[in-house]
Write a protein that binds this DNA or RNA. Structure first.
Length: 704
DNA sequence: CGATCACGC
DNA sequence: GCGTGATCG
């Protein structure tokens, strides 16, 4: 009996917390740090033990006048739950957690003071025992440095953290296996969890064979504090554990660079290392419930649990697979470029009458606009603009201009693609890009080191680079892309009858638009009219201004304005939608996708006109671009787990915003093609059809 | 390290 | 509109 009853001295609990927790007030300006810290500690004790009942005693005397009201406040909260022995139930815990939220000034729950007990061990028996700890959740952090796994920080209660260095029997694989097993019976939390999948496989994915499900599916799930923090604030560029600590726990901690500088972590002191890894585990454990609560409050649980978390595992898998790049052919391509670059360089020097650095916009500007006296149209902050659109207009004036444009294009191909990509080809002849899930403001994925989402496509010479991207022996690429996904989303979200109808006709959308805007029969639309309509469609999706459109089409701002007005006459629903979305974004402070992904737009309230205009374009574009990103992510989950369900050898390897690439086994081509198109098209049902095109090829050039 | 340019969707 | 990267000064 006595073992099941937790007896607490209320005065001591609050008093301890009062001195440990930095002072802060609730929304009414009353100091509540003691009550807050006390309840926080109480919750953590109740959650990590098996007490069946709780009894809290209070005494009258209290010396500290600032502390006294906090003890009384706590007494009030507790007595509302019951008198004497209070049964420990789920409801009690929930109500205590709600009490925490009420105490916090911004309605968020914040952690108690930094209060961590660290234990370092690599004793096999101790580690084995540790992994038998009873808890409903754990937080961990894999400490790695340039590919080396150094150790694991792990906590089951948010105050006791164990650091396990990798040594002897305790290998990276061993710890990974332990975590995989642990994930079967409790939820695991980490920071940037994608980086841990190399060592452990969460049980929720190990045998998963179903795709995206709207409703949550029960079971122990992994949680990534980084992804959660990103969803809540996608504008912050790089979240580090310390940022989460500060934002959610009000803790200030040294950063990685401050602790270790540029030294390899392997050289660092074990004490510093263990503390570093353990603090991150500590931060994760204590921030997790706060981030979960905020995600629930902001309606982003589905995004987090059903989309982003499974996606993190898929991105890891795609990075691991990589894509084969033919080293020798890439080199030959670069050499071919160099021949032409040298020719152009000579011709440019000849025409200029002087040798200069063509790559320097400053020097180039001086040559073109001063030495050669060409008409300078546009200026930048630092001088003449030498951007491509400016040079294109100058081309008839002087033969040097065309050469410069070609030179620019070729050196770009050479440095970024030919030479740039070569540096990333690994020993397996593959490039393993990093897909980043927590960078963009709109929810898109980004790709770095190298960026495989901007491989040339537009010009034939650039496009040829895609020939060096090949599938493994005997395999082919299946490349599927959504047809105009963003414009279709606009049609759906704006509910514009004309645009929806146009898509149901299944004909060339730009031609239909031109026909409607210019009042000519569909068959009589000229190529110029179609090109202009296409540019307007494009511009609308991006929320560009008449000025932006005029730049794109090289027409006057006046003409561009007329085009847009005609467009809005044709599709009045689009105009209405844009106005509504700006108003609601302004009112709420953020825009929202179909799946509830938020993008804060503080610019809408700026006093600066240009900034506010920018805010309007962002408010119009973010829901479109973000919804497209959501849909693609769902499609990826469907495609990935479908491949798994069917035990196919084919692997998803690339995502380029509206396009997926699968390295496909020859005997699976038909299955994969059908699967890709089906899963991508059914990822979401809109009021317009989703159209997916899929091509097969023996390299990426052919498959597009 | 910010500005400019060029590549993608 | 959203990104990444190379280059310059």
């Amino acid at each position: 009996m006595s073992e099941n009853l937790l007896i607490v001295n209320g005065n001591e609990l609050i008093s301890d917390a009062f001195y440990k927790t930095p002072a802060f007030t609730n929304s009414e300006g009353v100091f509540v740090n003691g009550v807050y810290g006390g309840i926080f500690k109480l919750i953590s004790i109740l959650k990590t033990s098996e007490y069946k009942a709780l009894s809290i005693s209070f005494s009258e005397e209290c010396g500290n006048e600032r502390l006294k009201p906090q003890i009384l406040k706590f007494k009030e909260i507790i007595e509302a739950k019951g008198q004497g022995e209070i049964p420990v139930t789920k409801e009690l815990l929930e109500s205590l957690e709600n009490a925490l939220k009420d105490l916090s000034p911004s309605g968020e729950v914040k952690g108690a003071s930094f209060d961590m007990t660290l234990k370092v061990t690599s004793d096999l028996n101790e580690v084995e025992a540790l992994f038998e700890t009873k808890s409903d959740r754990a937080a961990f952090y894999f400490l790695t440095d340039i590919g080396d796994f150094l150790g694991l920080g792990i906590s089951f209660d948010g105050s006791n953290v164990t650091y396990i260095p990798v040594e002897n029997f305790i290998t990276a694989d061993y710890l990974g296996k332990k975590l995989s097993i642990l994930s079967e019976r409790m939820s695991l939390c980490s920071f940037d969890i994608k980086e841990s999948y190399k060592y452990f496989e969460p049980s929720e994915f190990a045998n998963r064979t179903y795709g995206y499900k709207d409703e949550d599916v029960s079971g122990n799930k992994c949680f990534d504090v980084l992804i959660g923090a990103y969803l809540i604030n996608p504008l912050k560029n790089d979240y580090e554990p310390w940022d989460v600590a500060k934002e959610y726990l009000k803790l200030t901690l040294p950063k990685r660079a401050d602790l270790f500088g540029k030294e390899p972590l392997a050289n660092a002191d074990i004490k510093v290392l263990s503390e570093y890894a353990s603090k991150i585990a500590y931060i994760c454990f204590n921030a997790e419930p706060l981030i979960r609560a905020k995600l629930a409050k902001t309606g982003m649980e589905r995004l987090m649990y059903n989309i982003e978390m499974p996606l993190s595992y898929i991105l890891y898998s795609m990075e691991k697979e990589g894509i084969i790049v033919k080293r020798d052919e890439l080199k030959a391509y670069g050499d071919k470029l160099l021949v032409r670059i040298d020719e152009l360089e000579k011709a440019i020097y000849e025409a200029a009458g002087i040798e200069f650095n063509i790559n320097s916009p400053k020097q180039l500007g001086e040559i073109l606009f001063e030495k050669l006296g060409l008409p300078a149209e546009k200026k930048t902050k630092s001088g003449y603009s030498t951007a491509a659109d400016v040079l294109e207009k100058l081309a008839p004036e002087h033969k040097i201009v065309a050469d410069i444009l070609e030179y620019r294009g070729l050196t770009k191909l050479k440095s970024t693609y030919a030479d740039g990509l070569a540096a990333y080809i690994a020993d397996d002849n593959r490039i393993h890009t990093s897909f980043n899930q927590t960078i963009t403001a709109t929810g898109r994925i980004s790709s770095t080191e190298p960026n495989l989402q901007n491989i040339p496509m537009r010009t034939e010479l650039g496009r040829l680079i895609r020939k060096v991207f090949v599938p493994k022996d005997g395999y082919v690429f299946a490349d599927a892309d959504y047809s105009q996904i963003e414009l279709r989303i606009l049609a759906h979200m704006s509910e514009d009858k004309g645009l929806i109808e146009a898509y149901h006709e299944g004909k060339d959308i730009h031609r239909i638009t031109a026909s409607k805007v210019f009042h000519v029969p569909f068959e009589e639309v000229t190529s110029l009219q179609r090109r202009n309509a296409k540019a307007v469609n494009f511009g609308i999706v991006y929320g560009i201004s008449a000025f932006g459109l005029s730049q794109d089409l090289s027409i006057s701002a006046h003409e561009a304005k007329e085009y847009m007005e005609k467009y809005f006459e044709t599709y009045p629903g689009v105009k209405k939608y844009q106005e509504d979305v700006i108003a609601s974004t302004k009112a709420k402070g953020y825009s929202e996708t179909m799946f509830g992904r938020r993008r804060p737009v503080p610019e809408l309230k700026a006093s600066n006109f240009n900034l506010r205009q920018f805010g309007e374009r962002v408010a119009m574009n973010a829901p479109i671009q973000g919804t497209a990103a959501d849909i693609m992510k769902i499609a990826m989950i469907d495609v990935f787990f479908k491949l798994k369900e069917l035990s196919l050898k084919s692997k998803l390897i690339l995502q380029i915003h509206d396009e997926l690439v699968i390295e496909t086994a020859p005997d699976e081509v038909d299955t994969v093609t059908k699967l890709l198109v089906e899963e991508m098209e059914k990822a979401v049902t809109l009021s317009v059809p989703m159209e997916v095109d899929c091509h097969i090829g023996s390299d990426w050039y052919e498959a597009k």
